[in-house]
Amino acid sequence: MPTLILLTLSNIFMTAAWYWHLKGGPEVANARPMGWVILISWLLAGVEYCLAVPANRIGFADGWSAGQLKVAQEAIALTVFGIFMVTVLGEALSWRHAAAFACIMAAAGFMFVGK
């Protein structure tokens, strides 16, 4: 459970680091100075690393394989991004998002079968 919680928190920070500056549309995003965007994004990514590295070490110590950790992280990332995309960026979800989510969740399921 600590692994999943830390991976979720790390993905929240990484999603924010990668996409926060797009809020407001292209005109608003392009008006933000690139240097500041990069600096703020790096600060957010630093927090992400402080959460992701322990998550992976704890998960590995608990018997998760590297593949399981990566697929779980991707499944969490897609979930976090979907929520961020709708709530922060104001974009709508479509059937394509649902299909992609189903594929990632299927991959996560395959990685944990028999484990």
Rank of each mutant, 00 (worst) to 15 (best):
S65K: 13
V86R: 10
A52M: 11
A45N: 13
A77D: 06
Y49P: 14
A72R: 00
G59A: 01
V86N: 02
G82Q: 01
A55V: 00
G90C: 00
R57K: 09
V86G: 08
L69N: 02
A75L: 07
A61W: 04
A45V: 14
Q73C: 01
A72P: 15
L51Y: 11
T79W: 08
N56Y: 02
G59Q: 00
N56S: 09
L89A: 02
A72L: 06
D62C: 14
A72C: 08
L89H: 03
I58A: 00
A55C: 01
E91V: 00
V80L: 04
L78Y: 13
E48P: 02
L69W: 04
F60A: 07
W64F: 12
A52T: 06
I76Q: 07
T79S: 12
G82A: 09
T79C: 15
G63L: 10
T87S: 10
W64E: 05
Q68A: 11
I83V: 02
C50E: 10
V53Q: 12
V88D: 07
A77C: 04
V47F: 11
A61N: 12
R57E: 01
K70Q: 14
I76K: 03
V86D: 05
I76F: 06
Y49F: 13
E48S: 14
G82R: 03
I58R: 00
L89G: 03
Y49K: 14
G90M: 05
A45W: 12
A72T: 06
F81K: 05
V47S: 12
F81T: 01
A55G: 03
V71E: 04
V71Y: 02
V80W: 03
A77E: 04
F60Q: 10
A61R: 02
I83G: 03
A66E: 15
F60P: 08
G82F: 05
E74M: 09
V47C: 14
A55F: 00
L51F: 12
A75W: 06
N56T: 04
V53K: 08
K70Y: 13
A77M: 06
G67Y: 03
E91H: 07
T79L: 15
Y49N: 15
D62V: 10
V86Q: 09
T87N: 05
K70S: 14
I83H: 01
W64K: 01
S65D: 08
G90N: 02
M85E: 12
L51V: 09
Q68D: 12
K70D: 13
